[in-house]
Design a protein around this nucleic acid. Structure first.
Length: 883
DNA sequence: ATACATACC
DNA sequence: AACTGGTATGTAT
């Protein structure tokens, strides 16, 4: 659906006064396309009146207060920066900007298509009498989409229905019907495929197309392609859409929103055009910059437009993590992803339900069972097994809690999910909640294909393929791009054995490729391990279960650490007195640079400097201890670590904490050092090490960053208790085959991945940049990031293949503060005459025909496979498939 | 690894 | 009267 909008009234900073509603920063008070004539003051007032005093409202206030506090802190940090600091960060930022500029790629032409008020438009096709009347898809609780008539009243996506009705008493509510939306979505994709067979589906109603080749081959302008495509979509579906064309996906998405609805905007592949475009572009238009980020950037730095990101870049680098600062700067330059679509894998699967708050444990348990069943079914449909289970609770006061466990074995059955979910829930009781959710992540291979031996692998592959194919029809997003080719290969290769395996299994299940069948396969496959393991696990579980388990590990560990921390503190204090006078004497060269590691810490970061010297001290102690236990370890560099199995882990951790501050110092000193992909790390590789550039390099808060090191000390002295735990966990990986195989998959997706720019996130203070040579260090860091980068983020906003669509959040785009699109964005308003929404008149004559036809078509399709009679479960299933 | 927050549809 | 669901990812510990 169309872009997102949020309120973020940065202005009224919460002065109650005569007009208290002005300080209530709702999400939907700002307008979007079709909201020009809306009386925003009135909307704001109504929303406020309907909300004030409610639990929801109170929670919003709480959150807002938190953000404001954050802003205050950032302002203070900002004020603390000295001239020297600023000069330094200016250098860093300028250097990076130059490098970013050098990476600009103007060779591709991206087109972003976005259906206009998709759900509402589809519903209007189904029921033409809705035309011209204010209508919303959704319920009294929540609206997914509102048509343009309704938007005139201030009604918008993500607004609860009861408020919407207050704004527009005539409002017609239409329940969501994802089967229908999926059907029409598939029709649009047929058209997309013509222009880019590898288009990226962002959701049911939007997609990114690389039209570079089409333009070249046919020697036509991108503008014409956009026209043609939109006409094609209309012809195929009777629905209108908007398009944006730009040199990268980030900008294309912004552009598609400019002349919505039923319009398009082309931003030429020209640097000046891009810079001009960006110069007046409000930051909130950028994917990844939401209400909070906007609020912060405006509130702290007075940044309103993308261009101002560059002006304030030194502050951004001073106060945010490097990836975050970099993302901001790249936005200022109008950069975005231009790479070809990558294969993407689902990383988690979940479901959640809201109900009226209760603390009735029996009721809650019942909800949990239902969720576990649904989740298990969903997982088996996709052949997924995961080992991290997360319970989500929303309390009666709207506070959200999550509780997670990571298991030794991969699970997917209702029983397994439930068993652990119960434990998690139990630990929170008593509690009054209004929502429960379950999520499983850390998948075993991407398709539950863990298979210790070749025979079983065949089974699994078959199953996997079967599932994939089944998904193919109903899960176009995923199948289209992600799995089909691989899966087909497997299928054909293993065809024969499948048959026999199936036959063999049939008696057990009596099903053909049903979920039940799948389940049995899984059991079969894992039996060798699990059957043996399960009893022992259970023994362990029961041994640890309940309070024993919780208290056992938690409190014991806590005590243990407590003692050690104290010892360690004393140790450090004592040692620090003379440590600096020995071989490890450290100085601040030029008042900035650590003589030992080259990290730069501005003089104003007094506390950090102290901590930093502590760090070196700790490092030294660590070294010495290493020498004692591992005499063969070289001791020359402060960055060497013990090499025993345990030490490896320690090394990782120490590096992580040290790296943040030392940057690539280690690499400087040991250019040959490559972090070998550790077998047990591979699983992580896809999800954490590479995806989150952050996790590896970024450091936690400024304070106590070296405490990690201190902790390692404790851990080293640690008993076998925890070590065993760790060992258990590494053994937990059922089989390395799994990961091997998974790698085969991921290889394709990981490798080609381009630079990704961080999506904004905040910390209140940032550890100063590392190393003396700004250029070298920053550059290198980046390269490293690029190598690992696996997440197409940012510009490519999560193009989740399986993203779902009930896009409530997309609250329209406000036109105010973002005036005269034509003027501001330059010319090229080829679709000037489009109708805003009364625009439906534009195709009034043949429209009805088209609609009928399409609608009938849809009904034909939908009748056959789906027994109208199915109950909620099927509906839910469909909804999931639709997503 | 866990918990929480932000963002998007 | 009473403010969704599914997924990804960043931040902090």
């Amino acid at each position: 659906m169309e872009g997102t909008e949020g309120a973020a009234n940065v202005d009224g900073d919460g002065d109650g006064g005569d007009r208290p509603w002005q300080s209530y920063h709702t999400v939907y008070t700002t307008a979007k396309a079709g909201m020009e004539g809306v009386d925003k003051e009135k909307v704001q007032r109504v929303v406020y009146e309907m909300s004030k005093g409610s639990k929801y409202f109170q929670n919003e206030e709480r959150k807002e207060a938190f953000i404001n506090q954050k802003i205050q802190n950032l302002r203070i940090q900002c004020a603390k920066l000295t001239q020297a600091d600023l000069a330094h960060y200016r250098k860093v930022a300028d250097r990076r900007i130059v490098e970013l500029e050098a990476s600009r790629d103007l060779s591709r032409i991206w087109l972003h298509v976005d259906m206009d008020a998709f759900y509402a438009a589809v519903e209007t096709l189904s029921n033409p009498t809705l035309q011209g009347k204010p209508m919303a898809v959704g319920s009294m609780s929540m609206i997914s989409t509102a048509n343009y008539e309704a938007r005139k009243f201030g009604v918008r996506a993500a607004m609860p229905g009861f408020i919407a009705r207050k704004l527009c008493p005539e409002l017609i509510f239409v329940p969501t019907d994802f089967k229908k939306y999926t059907y029409y979505s598939d029709l649009t994709r047929k058209v997309f495929r013509i222009y880019d067979p590898n288009f990226i589906a962002g959701s049911l109603d939007e997609a990114y197309l690389d039209i570079t080749e089409v333009c070249k081959e046919r020697n036509v302008k991108s503008e014409e392609i956009a026209q043609e495509l939109r006409a094609g979509v209309y012809e195929e579906t009777g629905l209108t859409c908007s398009a944006g064309v730009a040199p990268n996906r980030l900008l294309a998405k912004v552009c598609s929103d400019i002349n919505k609805p039923n319009g398009q905007y082309v931003l030429p592949n020209d640097r000046m055009a891009v810079m001009t475009f960006v110069s007046s572009l409000p930051i909130r238009k950028i994917g990844g910059i939401g209400k909070v980020t906007e609020h912060i950037l405006k509130g702290v730095f007075e940044i309103n437009t993308c261009e101002q990101m560059l002006e304030k870049s030194c502050y951004l680098y001073a106060l945010f993590s490097q990836p975050t600062a970099e993302f901001f700067c790249s936005v200022g330059l109008g950069l975005g992803q231009t790479d070809s679509p990558q294969v993407r894998f689902r990383k988690s699967i979940s479901n959640e339900r809201t109900f009226s708050a209760t603390e009735d444990e029996v009721l809650l348990h019942k909800k949990l069972v239902e969720l576990a069943e649904m989740l298990s079914a969903d997982m088996q449909k996709e052949g997924l097994c995961g080992r991290t289970l997360t319970l989500k609770l929303k309390t009666a006061s709207f506070e959200v809690r999550t509780r997670a466990v990571t298991l030794q074995k991969y699970i997917s059955s209702t029983e397994d999910i439930l068993k652990h979910a119960k434990k998690l829930l139990k630990a929170e009781l008593p509690i009054s909640v209004r929502l429960i959710g379950l999520r499983v992540s850390q998948f075993n291979g991407d398709k539950c294909s863990a298979t210790p031996d070749p025979t079983q692998k065949t089974i699994t592959n078959f199953i996997t393929s079967g599932d994939v194919n089944r998904n193919g029809s109903s899960f176009p997003d995923v199948a289209d791009r992600d799995f089909v080719s691989d899966a087909e290969t497997n299928l054909s290769v293993d065809n024969q054995q499948q048959t026999s395996q199936l036959d063999w299994r049939d008696p057990f299940v009596g099903n053909y490729l049903s979920d039940g069948d799948y389940q049995s396969c899984v059991l079969q496959k894992n039996d060798g391990i699990e059957e043996v393991q399960t009893p022992s696990n259970d023994a362990t579980s029961s041994h640890h279960s309940g309070f024993t388990e919780a208290l056992g590990s938690t409190s014991f560990q806590g005590q243990f650490e407590g003692i050690n921390v104290m010892n360690e503190s004393k140790l450090l204090e004592g040692a620090s007195l003379n440590s600096c006078c020995q071989e490890t004497t450290m100085l601040w060269l030029n008042d900035y640079k650590c003589s030992l590691c080259g990290i730069e810490l501005p003089p104003s970061f007094v506390e950090e400097r102290l901590e930093h010297s502590d760090f070196h001290l700790a490092e030294k102690l660590q070294k010495e201890e290493s020498r004692i236990h591992q005499p063969c370890v070289p001791s020359g560099s402060p960055k060497r670590y013990r090499r025993d199995a345990y030490g490896k882990e320690e090394k990782e951790r120490v590096e992580n904490s040290a790296n943040v501050h030392n940057g690539d110092h280690r690499r400087l000193n040991e250019p040959n050092h490559q972090r070998a992909p550790h077998p047990t790390q591979q699983e992580k590789r896809g999800s954490i090490a590479q995806v989150g550039q952050s996790s590896g390099q970024r450091k936690a808060g400024e304070r106590g960053w070296w405490k990690d090191t201190r902790k390692q000390f404790n851990e080293r002295a640690e008993t076998s208790h925890r070590r065993e735990q760790r060992d258990d966990k590494s053994q937990a990986k059922p089989d390395d085959n799994t990961f091997q195989r998974r790698d085969d998959f991921s290889e394709r997706k990981d490798d080609p991945l381009p630079t990704s720019r961080k999506r904004p996130a905040f910390r209140e203070k940032r550890i100063p940049v590392e190393s003396g040579d700004v250029n070298l260090v920053v550059g290198r860091n980046d390269r490293k990031k690029e190598e690992r980068s696996n997440n197409p983020q940012h510009l490519g906003r999560p193009e989740k293949p399986f993203a779902d669509d009930r896009a409530p959040n997309k609250v329209g785009g406000r036109r105010d503060g973002f005036p005269s699109r034509g003027r501001r964005y330059g010319g090229n308003d080829s679709y000037r005459g489009r109708d805003k929404f009364n625009g439906r008149q534009g195709y009034s004559l043949d429209k009805i025909q088209t609609e009928k036809w399409k609608h009938d078509l849809y009904q034909d399709v939908s009748k056959d496979p789906i027994p109208q009679n199915e109950d909620d479960k099927i509906a839910k299933l469909e909804a999931l498939l639709a997503s």
